[in-house]
Simulated assay, not measured.
Amino acid sequence: MKTKFVPRIYKKKNAPLYLHITGHSKRERLLLDIEVDHQYWSTEEQRINISIIKDEQLKKLYQDINLIIDNIDSKITNIKTVYRLSEIVLTPKKLKQELIDDLPRVNFCSFFQHAIDEEKKIIEPGTYRKLQSVLNKLKRYDDQVIFTDLTELWFQRYKVHLSKIGNKKTTINSNIKSIKKIIRKAIRMGIKIPCVLEDIKAGSTLGTKVSLDPFELKKLKAYYDSEFICDAHRLMLAYFLFSCVTGLRFADVMAIDKDAVTDDFIQFKAEKVDKMQSIALNKRAKEIINSCDDLFVKHFTNEYVNRELKVIMRNLGLKKKLTYHVSRHTFATSFLRAGGKVEKLQLLLGHSSIKQTMVYSHIVSAEANKEMFLLDNLW
Rank of each mutant, 00 (worst) to 15 (best):
K93T: 03
G350I: 03
K54Y: 05
W379F: 13
I312S: 00
I183T: 06
Q113W: 15
V145Y: 06
K355L: 12
P194W: 09
D213H: 02
P92Y: 08
H299K: 09
T127H: 01
L150N: 01
D101S: 02
L318S: 11
T22D: 08
I76C: 00
S211L: 08
P16D: 01
T77C: 03
W379A: 15
S51I: 07
A368D: 13
D149N: 03
L61H: 15
M189T: 10
F268M: 05
S174E: 12
A366I: 02
R84N: 15
L197H: 07
Q63V: 15
F373R: 06
Q57V: 12
A270K: 13
R157Q: 11
F112W: 13
T171L: 04
Q97L: 10
I279G: 12
R140I: 13
S42L: 07
N66G: 02
N136S: 11
C292F: 01
V305H: 03
V106G: 00
E308P: 09
I100E: 10
V6C: 08
L206P: 07
R84V: 14
I9Q: 11
E287I: 00
V359K: 06
S226Q: 05
H362S: 03
I256K: 08
P16N: 00
I123N: 09
L378H: 03
I229M: 12
D257Q: 01
S42C: 06
Q39V: 04
D274T: 13
I68C: 09
I183F: 11
L220R: 00
D231I: 03
P104E: 09
Y83D: 01
S365N: 14
I72N: 03
L349E: 05
K209I: 13
M254C: 06
F373Y: 02
C292H: 02
S327C: 08
L67A: 11
N377P: 10
K201F: 01
N377R: 06
A366R: 05
V36N: 03
Q356M: 13
E44L: 14
K159A: 08
Y40L: 02
T151L: 03
I122C: 10
K60W: 07
K168Q: 15
V245F: 01
N71V: 07
N282A: 03
V145I: 06
R27N: 05
Q132W: 11
I122T: 14
A270T: 08
Y304I: 06
L30G: 01
